[in-house]
Design a binder for these strands. Structure first.
Length: 422
DNA sequence: TCTGGGGTCCTAGGACCC
DNA sequence: TCTGGGGTCCTAGGACCC
């Protein structure tokens, strides 16, 4: 039998905050989104206090803090670095690994054919990661990706267990799926689960037993794959090659509402500059830049969402072009009198930079294009060091519209913020 | 008063062509 | 000018994920 494993870090952001703060062992921890808006991670203790995922911070703040809970703004420099360390360890243990998200990876256990050995391997992995990085993980082992997700879900529920759960024989799988609501199945979100419930399908077991042609006809190929995977038929492969991105998004909610074009422009410029950096980092060029702006979802009276795309005549990776396109698109969608709460820049339709399609009307010579590339490289190099340089249209330093009041030190990625001992 | 950010895939429908 | 089917390409929108 062939096994896959899903390695999933427990309460990842909260666990990261704990790595350099042993004093916070067993203390409730929550981590907040940008602007300290809502809760995006909770430690086991915070969950036990009834703090829900995604809940607005202001709603729970008082009660939570008064009970001794600890809170952090998100510190992605730290989380990203600790994630890399975990993934590096896993990468050294198997031939094929798919890093699925910042805190999850699928492993191909092709070297293991025996269930007991798979279980032992899981425990070994878990101990090594705990010892070397300090992050607790749980591991689900099963014949398909969807079933490893189920196994990992069970491992989470079974507190005090080894944190490793294997799911292999049909009888055992059926038994587990009977007690699993479809909403918990990977690939079944809020809408699908409502729809399926209306058809009388509530448990993962009932879904698994539903006629596959009916599923395909009524819901399409995506759900069909899920059902097959629940039956133990592997349909979703491990993607161990890193595919180039197909789009890049930079977006933020604002601390305060913005209703003037003059205030919005520098913010959009900031997003566009950041998007350009990401694009060059990916070694891509884009043919489209889109801008979106929207009022708060919760403001029912003054509601407006704008979206517009600027098409470049040929693929670009030059920030100055992106800024120009972004500005044009923004001018088209902006409407006066609306309190905008969020905006973003989206780059898409990528092509590799060595592929240069010349425009009929483009008069730039090879030398000029080369100069542009050099300029961008120079700016990127400066900005990744201590020095920062800005485009005129960007917001000046010190006026960051994003609020982060309770961020922890970047212990592992910044020389000035290394942990110290007394 | 205050409600995240960054992705992917699939499908339906329109434009255009023969 | 109208008639008709079928194919491709593109886009917007909806669903999902962490």
């Amino acid at each position: 039998m062939k096994f896959l494993a899903l390695v999933d870090c427990d309460n990842f952001y909260a666990s990261c905050e704990r790595v350099f703060r042993p004093d916070l062992k067993e203390v409730p921890i929550v981590v907040l989104s940008n602007n300290d808006g809502c809760v995006i991670a909770r430690s086991k203790e915070a969950k036990a206090m009834g703090i829900k995922m995604g809940v607005p911070w202001f709603q729970v703040k008082e009660a939570y803090l008064s009970q001794g809970g600890k809170v952090f703004s998100s510190n992605f420099a730290l989380y990203g670095d600790l994630s890399k360390r975990v993934m590096n360890i896993l990468d050294g243990m198997v031939k094929r690994i798919e890093i699925y998200s910042i805190d999850e990876a699928f492993l191909d256990l092709e070297h293991i054919s025996n269930l007991d050995h798979a279980h032992e391997f899981g425990i070994y992995c878990r101990n090594i990661i705990k010892q070397w990085v300090g992050i607790p993980v749980r591991i689900g082992i099963a014949p398909t990706k969807t079933l490893t997700k189920v196994a990992s879900h069970i491992a989470k529920k079974k507190n005090g267990d080894a944190g490793v759960f294997c799911l292999s024989n049909q009888g055992h799988i059926a038994h587990i799926l009977k007690a699993l609501p479809i909403r918990e199945v990977w690939g079944i979100g809020h809408n699908l689960s409502k729809h399926l419930n209306q058809l009388g399908i509530y448990s993962a077991y009932e879904l698994m037993k539903t006629d596959i042609r009916f599923i395909r006809k009524k819901f399409g190929v995506v759900l069909e794959r899920t059902v097959r995977e629940l039956r133990g038929e592997s349909c979703i492969q491990i993607e161990d090659k890193i595919e180039p991105k197909k789009q890049i998004v930079v977006s933020r909610s604002f601390k305060e509402r913005i209703d003037s074009l003059e205030s919005l422009k520098p913010l959009i410029s900031n997003f566009a500059v950041r998007a350009g950096e990401k694009l060059r980092h990916e070694k891509q060029k884009c043919s489209k830049v889109s801008i979106f702006i929207s009022t708060s979802r919760f403001n029912k009276q003054l509601h407006h969402r704008g979206f517009n795309t600027f098409h470049f005549p040929y693929p670009v990776d030059d920030t100055r072009s992106i800024l120009m396109g972004a500005d044009r698109a923004l001018n088209i969608i902006f409407k006066k009198g609306y309190p905008y709460a969020k905006a973003g820049v989206l780059l898409s339709q990528f092509s590799h930079p060595t592929f240069i399609q010349h425009s009929l009307f483009d008069s730039k010579s090879q030398d000029q294009l080369k100069q542009d590339t050099n300029l961008m490289q120079a700016i990127d190099a400066l900005n990744s060091s201590q020095t920062q340089i800005y485009y005129a249209s960007q917001l000046s330093l010190g006026e960051s519209p994003i609020q982060k009041k309770m961020v922890s030190p970047r212990y592992t990625t910044n020389w000035w913020e290394l942990p110290t001992t007394k």
